[in-house]
Design a protein around this nucleic acid. Structure first.
Length: 487
RNA sequence: GGCGGUAUCGUCUAGGGGACUAGGACGGAGCCCUCUCAAGGCUCAAACACGGGUUCGAAUCCCGUUACCGCUACCA
C-alpha cells in the first residue's frame, strides 16, 4: 500500500457571473497550492445554476484568468447545472428519510412573516408550520400546489467542525433555520447543489472564502443526512480595498484581467495574491509558483482579511521583471511594441540579440511591461521628441549645449570601437579636456539621444542606439539648437 | 437586532508563555553609490485595540468590552 492518507481532492467553484475576481483567484491559488503540495487533484466546477446571471463569456473569462495565472486544473470541468438529476435524487432521498419536508408557504406569506418579525424587532426564522404536515397530506397537496423542500434541522445539539484556518467553529442547531434545499421549480438551492456535487466529486477539503462560514453548518447537516463522510473545511479570509471594505469596483481594478492589461506579470500577480493571507515564514517574499508549492502549508494561512495594496503589487512586479530573463520577457513585450507601432515582428527578429540586450537594459527600471515599452520608444522611432522639461534643464544655454554636442559628435565619429568601455573613455576624455564634470556632458547628450532626462547609463544607451542612429540624433539635436558657428 | 468570525507599524506580515529593546517587506524620510532615473546598500519614524484574569513571567492562554467584517433570499 502506498500511503495511508488518500490523495486530497480540492476544488475551485466560481459562479460564472463576471470576470475572475482577485478574491476568487486567490481562493483558487490556495486550493491549487494545496493540491500540488500534497499530490492531490485540483478540480474546477462552474456553478451555473443561476441561469439568469450566468454567461458563457464569464466562464471563458474564468478559464483564461486561471490559465494566465498558471493554475491548471485536473480532470474535466464540472458544470453544476448538469448535475440537476442527481441534485433532485438527493433531495428525494432527504424527503424519503424524513430529513426534509415539503413546504407550501408562498413567498408572499414568508415575506409577511419576515416583515412582522422585523416590526416586532425579533430575529426571523421560519416557523416550521409545514414541518408538522402529515407526509401523506403533503404528498397529496404536492400534486396540485407549488412547494419547496426544506431541510428539517434538529432542534437540539450543535453542529461543529475543525476549520483548517480558524480551528473549532460551532453553531447551535437551534439557531439554524429549516433552510430550503429545492425551489418550487424543482431546482436545487446553492447549499444543496454544492453538497451533492462535492460528494459526487469526492472532495476531501472544501477551501473557500470566509463568507461561507455560515453556510457550513447547513452543509454539514446535509452530508450527515445524506450519509456521506464529511470533508475538511478551510475558510480563507476576504480581500478588502484600501478603505477596509470588501473589494469592489470602487477600488479600481478587481478582475485579474485588469492587471494583465496594466502590464502586471502573472508570476508577480500570483506571488502577490499568495502573500495576501498567507506567509511562508522566514521573511520570504519573492517566490515562483514552484517555491510556493514547496513552502505551502495551511498553518501559514491568516484569519483576518487582507487589504489589497496596489503599491506593493507594483513593487513585486518590478522585482519579477528584473529577475525575468530577456528571452522570457520577449513574448510579453513584443506584442505591445507591435501594438504601439514601434516595431514589426520582422524587425525584431532581424536584430534579435540587440533586442534581447535592450530588454535586459530596460527591465531594471521598469515596474510594469508598459514602462518597458515607454522607455523603448527612442530606440525604435526614427524621429525624436524632446521633453520640454529636459530641454529647459539640460539645454538651458543653447549655444553652449550645441557646441558641446558638436564636439561630442566629432569624437564619437572617431571612436574606433562602439562598446561601452571605448565610449566611456572617449567621452570622459572629452569632458576632461573641456574641464567639465562628466555629468555636464552626459546629461545634454542623454537629452539628444533619448529626448528625456532619465534613461539607463549613457554608455549603455549609446551602445543600444548604435553608431548611425547616435549620429542622426546628434544632427537632429544640433538642428534643433541651431548649429554652432564653425571657424 | 440575531448568529458567526477577526483584532501586531498606514499596508502585507513574523511571532505559538521567558530568545521582544516586538523582526522582515511595501510605502514615507534621509544617507551612500552615481552621468540621470531605477536597482542595490545603510539609517530613521512607525504596531501588540482596551480592561480584567491565569502565571514567577503574557503580543502569545482564558474571560469580558470595543471596533470592524461576514451571513441573516425560492442569489451563489
Amino acid at each position: 500500500m502506498p500511503d495511508s492518507s488518500p490523495a486530497p481532492r480540492v476544488r475551485f467553484a466560481p459562479s460564472p457571473t463576471g470576470f475572475l475576481h482577485v478574491g476568487g483567484a486567490r481562493t483558487a491559488l490556495f486550493n491549487w497550492l494545496y493540491a500540488r503540495k500534497y499530490g492531490g487533484a485540483f478540480l474546477l466546477r462552474i456553478e451555473d445554476t443561476d441561469k439568469a446571471r450566468s454567461t458563457e463569456a464569464s466562464t471563458r473569462a474564468i478559464f483564461q484568468g486561471l490559465e494566465w495565472l498558471g493554475l491548471d486544473w485536473d480532470e474535466d470541468v464540472v458544470y453544476q447545472a448538469q448535475g440537476l438529476e442527481r441534485h433532485r435524487r438527493d433531495v428525494a432521498h432527504l424527503l424519503q428519510t424524513g430529513s426534509a419536508y415539503r413546504c407550501f408557504c408562498t413567498p408572499a406569506e414568508l415575506e409577511a412573516q419576515r416583515a412582522a418579525a422585523a416590526a416586532r424587532k425579533e430575529a426571523y426564522k421560519y416557523d416550521r408550520r409545514c414541518a408538522a404536515l402529515a407526509p401523506e397530506e403533503a404528498a397529496r397537496r404536492a400534486g396540485s400546489e407549488p412547494f419547496v423542500v426544506r431541510f428539517r434541522v434538529p432542534d437540539d445539539g450543535i453542529t461543529t467542525w475543525d476549520d483548517l484556518v480558524h480551528g473549532t467553529i460551532s453553531f447551535p442547531n437551534k439557531d439554524i433555520e429549516d433552510f430550503i434545499v429545492l425551489r418550487s421549480d424543482a431546482t436545487p438551492i446553492y447549499n444543496m447543489a454544492v453538497v451533492s456535487d462535492d460528494i459526487a466529486m469526492g472532495i476531501t477539503l472544501v477551501m473557500r472564502g470566509d463568507d461561507h462560514i455560515s453556510n457550513t453548518p447547513k452543509q454539514i447537516l446535509l452530508y450527515q443526512a445524506l450519509g456521506s463522510a464529511l470533508p475538511r473545511f478551510a475558510h480563507v479570509p476576504m480581500i478588502h480595498g484600501l478603505d477596509g471594505k470588501k473589494l469592489s469596483k470602487r477600488h479600481g481594478a478587481t478582475a485579474v484581467a485588469d492587471y494583465r492589461l496594466q502590464g502586471i506579470l502573472p508570476t508577480a500577480m500570483v506571488n502577490f495574491l499568495a502573500l495576501l493571507g498567507w506567509s511562508p515564514g522566514e521573511d520570504l517574499e519573492i517566490m515562483t509558483l514552484h517555491e510556493m508549492i514547496e513552502r505551502f502549508s495551511a498553518d501559514g494561512l491568516q484569519k483576518k482579511p487582507a487589504i489589497f495594496d496596489p503599491k506593493k503589487l507594483e513593487w513585486l512586479n518590478g522585482q519579477h521583471l528584473s529577475l525575468l530573463a530577456a528571452a522570457m520577457l520577449e513574448p510579453l513585450v513584443t506584442p505591445e511594441l507591435i501594438a504601439a507601432e514601434l516595431a514589426t515582428a520582422e524587425e525584431l527578429g532581424a536584430r534579435h540579440d540587440w533586442y534581447l540586450a535592450l530588454l535586459d537594459m530596460l527591465k531594471v527600471r521598469a515596474r510594469t511591461v508598459h514602462d518597458i515599452v515607454r522607455q523603448a520608444v527612442p530606440y525604435f522611432r526614427q524621429d525624436i521628441e524632446y521633453e520640454p522639461a529636459a530641454v529647459a534643464k539640460q539645454w538651458k544655454d543653447r549655444a553652449a549645449a550645441a557646441e558641446l554636442l558638436a564636439a561630442a559628435r566629432e569624437r564619437l565619429r572617431l571612436a574606433e570601437r562602439w562598446n561601452a568601455e571605448t565610449l566611456e573613455q572617449t567621452l570622459r576624455a572629452l569632458a576632461e579636456e573641456r574641464g567639465v564634470a562628466g555629468g555636464k556632458l552626459f546629461q545634454p547628450l542623454r537629452v539628444a539621444l533619448t529626448g528625456m532626462s532619465v534613461s539607463p547609463g549613457i554608455f549603455e544607451v549609446l551602445v543600444a542606439m548604435g553608431r548611425e542612429r547616435t549620429d542622426d540624433r546628434l544632427d537632429a539635436a544640433l538642428r534643433f539648437l541651431g548649429e554652432p558657428a564653425r571657424d
